[in-house]
Amino acid sequence: MSAMSGWLELADIQGRPKRMWTQSLSWVLFALGVAVYLQFSIARHRENPDDRVMPTGTQLMAGVHSAVMDQPEEDDPLADGASRWERVTHGMLWKDTVASGERFGISLLLLIPAILLGLHMAVFPLAESVFLRFFLFFDKIVALSLLPILFIVFGIDQWSKIMLMVIGVGPTLVLDTYNLAKAVPREQVVKAFTLKSSNLDVAYRVVLKQILPQVINSVRLNLKPLALFLFAGEMIASTDGLAYRIALMRRHMGMDIILPYLLWVALLLFVLDGTLRLVNRRLNPWY
């Protein structure tokens, strides 16, 4: 009876389902995904024991172990007595995560000036007249089409990929910040000036502080495009990184490595997104 009323609560727009029900249901699709995968994997392996497209649970666990503990083929082998920790920090997954993370982190830092530019464009008429039209146009350029130019200008190392990410996401973030800052009620700006604020006070202590939570949310929404550009760059020309490894394993049909990598990337982005959400809540308790 109780279970029945729980279901009814969930189906009713005005219902107030118990937390236990909502929490349990939020895991259903994950469990379903795993079950369907395993079902298909077992079926394929029954037909062909050497199937490499859908590795079994055991093969996947072996793949995870190999990704974490084994060194990349291109590196010099570790000494025989290397500790477990040394093996992890010289392993494929660690090395690729650090390489991609470094690119990702630098790009995120380089997006801070983009946010400030958007703010200045919204607040100062001079910046608006100089930059707005340019960014409206520049935002429409498909960033990936610039990749050959970036390779020529920055070489095929780190910076071409970082610039691809910044050019891909930067203009969107500039325009988003611009729109958010423009939407701050005019009364607030007027009020701030009557309270003896300077131009910079109005820009940073009034407007930026008010739009900061939305700007952080905008960055959160742009995490995936940022990762997309990172992957595009790494897949085309790289010697390390998560996407490089996935591209490399694709050639060997190494699905036992690709699938853990794929889930690892999703997990990293999920954790980063959650961290930003937490930071947002701590920094802006009023929002």
Binding site: V190, K191, T194, Q210, L212, N284, W286
Partner: peptide, 29 residues
């Protein structure tokens, strides 16, 4: 400028500051 105090119908306060911080904002500046 600060010659005039201003109380509009809406959006009169900075939403990111507490009541006390709102009131102290001007004199601190």
């Amino acid at each position: 400028d600060a010659r005039c105090g201003y109380v509009p119908q809406k959006y009169a306060l900075f939403p990111d500051r507490s009541v006390m911080q709102n009131v102290l904002y001007g004199p601190e500046n």
